[in-house]
């Protein structure tokens, strides 16, 4: 009983350490760490979608979360408020088209008031 748990914990620790870099996400966006979450950022046109998951890439329901995406568009920071949508998705609309792979950060406030933020380079 103990050995599998230890293995699991060690695996999770290793996963946390290894996932410090951006990777490709399952929705075609970029994934980064935000506190204890994994956040996938998908920017298409003017729409910003953020998908929440835990370390094991299991989706976390977005209900109750609030968020803000700050993205650098054309050398200027653009603030995009995010609202929960279906499933583990938060969505928001920017005033201008965002272009491919904008730099920036996503800040999240959980239902309990805890905050997390992650950057995309």
């Amino acid at each position: 009983m103990i050995l599998p748990r230890v293995t699991l914990a060690a695996g999770l620790l290793a996963a946390t350490a290894a996932s410090a870099h951006e990777t490709a996400g399952r929705h075609g966006g970029r994934v980064t760490d935000a506190g204890t979450f994994h956040v996938e950022l998908v920017a298409r046109g003017e729409t910003v979608d953020v998908f929440l998951s835990d370390e094991g890439q299991r989706p976390i329901p977005a209900a109750g979360f609030k968020g803000t995406a700050i993205l650098v568009v054309g050398g200027k920071p653009t603030r995009v408020p995010l609202e929960p949508a279906d499933g583990n998705r938060l969505t928001g609309k920017a005033a201008t088209a965002l272009g491919a792979g904008p730099r920036g950060a996503v800040q999240l406030t959980g239902p309990d008031g805890g905050t997390a933020s992650g950057t995309f380079h």
Partner: peptide, 22 residues
């Protein structure tokens, strides 16, 4: 008390950067 995560947007001349601090 607790962990606070926030983002800071820095604009210094030509350089624009967004940093996540906890």
């Amino acid at each position: 008390p607790g962990r606070h995560a926030f983002t800071a947007t820095v604009t210094a001349g030509e350089d624009v950067d967004i940093l996540a601090v906890a």
